[in-house]
Design a protein around this nucleic acid. Structure first.
Lengths: 148, 148
DNA sequence: TTTTCTGCAAACGATTTGCATACAC
DNA sequence: GTGTATGCAAATCGTTTGCAGAAAA
């Protein structure tokens, strides 16, 4: 399992904000954990949960995803397809900051880890005085399959 | 005026797709042209037009912005604030591909032109076989004013 | 008990669409 | 005259919220 936080960490984080680690929230998180690299939307998560007979309201899915994002467990991302998607917000620097490759033909979203943006970020900080905390990088183009 | 296409180009592009360069479409485009670096939403454009006594339906604004984006005149961008925004899609390589610096405190969006992503793109193409056509880069952080 | 959590339905806000009319070639 | 554009209102769709009951501390 590619998560780099413990259940205890999570409980602590929730507790600090006067929240609880409820069964529903664990279910929602587990769906994301089980599908690395999948960028699920709230409706996706809801659908998967219903499929596995876990009855849970769509509003609760939204609220759980929102909460987990606020805690930094998940990362909310937008691919311009009209809905928010979520992925695990890895805190390990080696996996953090991966880039998304979005195929404009088939719509497939793949990931690419290597982060070569440091130079650019340093340059920007120096020139503009803007202190960068995070970034989102999306590349649009044609995936290997669609090129052929 | 920072546009690098002529009215004739635009007319031709529209004509190729069996569309017309109507007065309304010109109005919408002009609003964007007059405000470089402003990232206006459809409602922003609609509001500005009403202010200057140009009566035009909101749906028409949406349709015009959509059409101009399809033609590559405008670029549709998402800053995660719940609505699509539009900017001029400069075709001049020296101004193309500017990055957005989004302040997480005051919400201000500024631009930064320098494009140092070439190395990264070359690396990705080589490693993944993904052919990159365009990219979107957003940096989140604190602007100069909010740091103080 | 007091607080948080959940489900449901209603509300919401950005965007799209159906349709009748107006315009352009 | 034929096809495209437009305005308006209604519909749509993802998301949020109000509220009442359920669960947890």
């Amino acid at each position: 399992m590619p998560n780099n936080f413990t259940l205890e960490d999570l409980k602590q984080k929730l507790h600090d904000g006067q929240h609880k680690l409820t069964p529903r929230r664990q279910l929602v998180l587990q769906i994301i954990l089980d599908r690395p690299g999948e960028h699920l939307s709230a409706e996706d998560v809801h659908y998967i949960l219903r499929e596995q007979k876990s009855e849970i309201g769509l509003a609760t899915v939204y609220r759980s995803l929102e909460l987990l994002s606020e805690l930094g467990i998940l990362q909310k991302i937008e691919f311009g397809d009209g809905c928010s998607r979520y992925e695990l917000n890895a805190t390990d620097p080696s996996t953090h900051h991966h880039h998304h490759l979005i195929c404009v033909k088939c719509g497939k979203v793949t990931e690419f880890d290597k982060d070569l943006l440091e130079d650019l970020e340093a340059h920007i900080e120096k020139k503009s005085g803007f202190h960068i905390l995070d970034h989102q990088v999306k590349f649009f183009g044609l995936c290997k399959e669609c090129r052929e």
